[in-house]
Design a protein around this nucleic acid. Structure first.
Lengths: 345, 345
DNA sequence: CCTCCCTGTGGAACCGTTTGCACTATATGC
DNA sequence: GCATATAGTGCAAACGGTTCCACAGGGAGG
């Protein structure tokens, strides 16, 4: 069917090994032979069979990205796309292909990963935000497969991972509001079992404490990474006898819910409530008004994860590489937080 | 290193061929042998090597998705993620893996595709919105590789493709505005070299014509699939001596730009201007106000494309399968188009 | 009782590469 | 002039499966 290395060899009057060596730029091949073989390859339209190459080299030059089960959630879309862009770009640059696997149940997820890794279809995996108890992480660890976590694992702190300094990021976000003169600052958190929620809450608390402001339990609301959570948090806050004048929100989509609710009730942002949120996905720029958001370098997270993984694959087991990569964050200030509250605190 | 079919064979006291037959549920294997072999496989932790399997079967059980070069554009993000979700879900269901390839230059794109298809790493490809002149399409066609286009090709109408009836969809969207009583309806188009732009423009014209309304050149504005285009279109329209009372907009993101501009100038939607747009990505639901949008079933587009491709791979060359799949559309009416204009037309 | 068929299994070739080893010239050092 | 290094190439054995063909043994049919 397709033209193989043997066909080329025959046509060029050399042995298959010679053709193979030409392909890998082996230095022992003479100029003329090399040129002749290359000409024949062009002439016959030869393309190396990756599968055969993989079989003998025991590597596939591909990695996979494991999407967590609830990839359906809206919020995740933009976030993931950006992440994947970063991953794919870097991987391709290093000569790797990227395979996307979206999990069903946790069990199916492990099976899929097992098929891919144990079946040698891919050389390593990137996991997006592991859960506190993640069977996939356990599996990969036990079988000694190269993988990198985007986020971090509390269970195994030595795991190769790429993350933000979320404590510092939340501290910075809160500090920004404080520096505008806000004294009553609320926090809209994500699910409490997500490490990122806890980290950011901690940063928020640190900032308040440092400024000598009290942390009020009733100014901290938990929710999902969904618009509705923002909506609910908003109505909760606005019904308090003593309301915050500013909010730190875990995610842009949640902020959008807050915004929506405020708009319905006739409140104005930033005049009635200032908002700073996280992730800086495009939505935050496009909303009315645009939302100040902590850019966590999503593309960069993906890019770095891919790089770290491939490095770890290529220098198998070599412990000299950095285990934990921190991607810098940067506050992007927009209309939602340009207001200085009046003093009657 | 890893345990192979031979190890299993040895341990179970059978030949490698027998083990292979057990793996493929060959009916000629006796119950007992089969069970014994399976036990040994469990015991040794055997996992079939996909690469070896691919080599002999000459299929990879994977497909690839080719992202067009300007995947950087914001708008595309949500759209693509949704598409990819559909593709991956269906592919996995059919036992296929999905590989993502993002192009650089057109030349690099062709090279990448060639490497994947000619190199037998994947069995087929899904292309997202081909350009009018698409070297990748040409390449795939010439080499006889299975592929499906999301969108349609004017150059090769016989190509396997999945698309919407964009003429009809635009007709429906426009009709909706007309039925609300609007007589002066503008159109914000995408790049004129995109087939989808032309199709939708046509549908818009059809609806106007049918209603006995004149199509005014100055009420049709071209732009990119970007927020800025919407912003510019809006200021153009609002500066006209005679302004439209409603707009049909090619894409949700563009609508967001329109919305943004109107808000800045103090106009209100839908009171001052009604908007119906296309794609119904989550943004349209989350904006202030929410935008009426033509849902084109993005997930479904991806899902169907994947299905069609795999069918075409498995029944190679069989022409009995449908060449052109049309995904139904559905108008989702939201606040941006619930206003009936006053009569002074 | 002999042939034929059927079931269950093993042997070996093959898929398209890579690579260690062997081999032939030619060049080098002494 | 002879041992030795070196460049350039071929042979054959992997890599881990699948599958065609052969073959043994037992039951059925004549």
């Amino acid at each position: 069917m397709s033209v193989t290395i043997k066909d080329v060899a025959k046509r060029a009057g050399v042995s298959p090994s010679t053709v193979s060596r030409v392909l890998s730029n082996n230095s022992r091949i003479s100029r003329e032979t090399s040129q002749k073989v290359r000409d024949v390859m062009k002439e016959l339209g030869y393309h190396p069979n990756m599968t055969a190459k993989s079989l003998v080299s025991k590597t596939s030059s591909s990695i996979c990205v494991i999407l967590p089960k609830p990839a359906e959630e809206l919020f995740l879309n933009l976030f993931f796309m950006e992440l994947i862009r970063g991953i794919v770009t870097q991987a391709n640059r290093s000569g790797y292909d990227v395979l996307i696997s979206s999990g069903g149940s946790e069990k199916e997820e492990v099976e899929a990963v097992s098929r891919l890794l144990n079946g040698k279809r891919v050389d390593g995996a990137i996991l997006l935000y592991s859960r506190k108890e993640d069977p996939v992480v356990d599996f990969l660890r036990q079988n000694g497969h190269p993988f990198v976590l985007i986020g971090r694992s509390e269970k195994y702190p030595d795991i190769l991972s790429v993350d933000n300094d979320n404590v510092q990021a939340a501290y910075d976000a809160t500090k920004h509001l404080i520096s505008l003169g806000h004294r009553r600052i609320g926090f809209v958190s994500g699910p409490p079992n997500h490490i990122v929620s806890r980290d950011r809450l901690k940063g928020y608390r640190n900032a308040l404490e440092e400024a000598g402001l009290e942390t009020r339990k009733d100014w901290i609301v938990e929710g999902e990474f969904l618009q509705e959570s923002g909506y609910r948090a908003m109505s909760f806050f606005m019904n308090l006898p003593e309301r915050p004048t500013a909010l730190v929100v875990m995610d842009d989509l949640v902020s959008l819910g807050v915004l929506r609710g405020l708009h319905e009730l006739g409140y104005r942002v930033p005049d009635d409530l200032c908002i700073v949120s996280f992730n800086n996905i495009s939505i935050s720029e496009l909303s009315t008004p645009p939302i100040s958001s902590m850019d966590i370098g999503i593309y960069n997270l993906g890019y770095t994860a891919s790089q770290a993984l491939i490095q770890s694959i290529q220098h198998d087991g070599d412990r000299q590489f950095q285990k934990r990569h921190i991607i810098p964050h940067r506050l992007v200030i927009r209309e939602s937080s340009i207001f200085t509250p009046s003093k009657p605190s």
